[in-house]
Amino acid sequence: MQQTKKTYTLQEATKKLEHYCAYQERCHKEVAQKLTGMHMIPEAIDVIIVHLLQHNFLNEERFAKTFVSGKFKFKAWGRSRLTYELKKKDISKVNINQALATISEEEYNEYFNYLAEKKANSIKEPNVFKKKKKFVDYFLYRGWESYLVYDKANELIK
């Protein structure tokens, strides 16, 4: 028995993608992937993306700011990781920089210091070197600048 794949008219696909974008901020790449997954032809994909842009369902600048704010607050990602993840989503350098600028230097450092103290206290490792390594690995993976991480590790873990 041959399985038939669902096909969408331009109107159906447009409605579906309006809901997809209204539910959560999306970037162009995610929308294009979704449409490709729906077996839409490239011409239809372009028409739908233009429609979403014109009707403000799709806005890369807004996406970048929302992404940075959410991942910084809830996943405790540093600037390096945020930049890397946005580049993977083909976000322009201008939008990446604007989004990162929404986090003040003061807020960034305060949050890092808070997280660092919490993490240093939570690592139950008697060996100082292993404890430092765990601390450093944790923050570098999350994209915090290495100079911040190493300075803090040396300050908190003795």
Rank of each mutant, 00 (worst) to 15 (best):
I91E: 04
S104M: 07
I157G: 06
A32P: 12
Y150P: 06
T102P: 09
Q11L: 15
F135Y: 08
F57C: 01
Y150W: 07
L10C: 11
Y150L: 12
A64Q: 05
W77N: 13
H39C: 15
L148M: 09
S80K: 08
A116V: 01
H28M: 11
R62M: 08
A44K: 03
T36V: 09
H19W: 15
K124T: 14
Y23A: 11
F139N: 03
F63E: 05
Y114I: 07
T66K: 10
A32F: 12
T9I: 01
K131N: 02
K65T: 06
T9D: 07
L115G: 03
Q2M: 13
E25N: 13
I96G: 01
I48N: 10
N121I: 01
K16R: 06
M1G: 14
K118D: 11
K89R: 11
N127E: 06
D46L: 14
V94T: 13
S146W: 02
S122E: 14
K29D: 13
E30W: 09
E106D: 08
N95I: 04
L115W: 04
N127Q: 08
L140S: 02
I123A: 14
K34S: 07
E43F: 04
E125Y: 03
A13I: 10
Q11C: 14
H28E: 12
I157N: 05
E105Q: 12
E145C: 06
Q33R: 10
E25H: 14
F139V: 00
K71S: 03
V128P: 07
Y147P: 12
K133T: 12
V68G: 01
I48A: 04
F112A: 01
V149D: 09
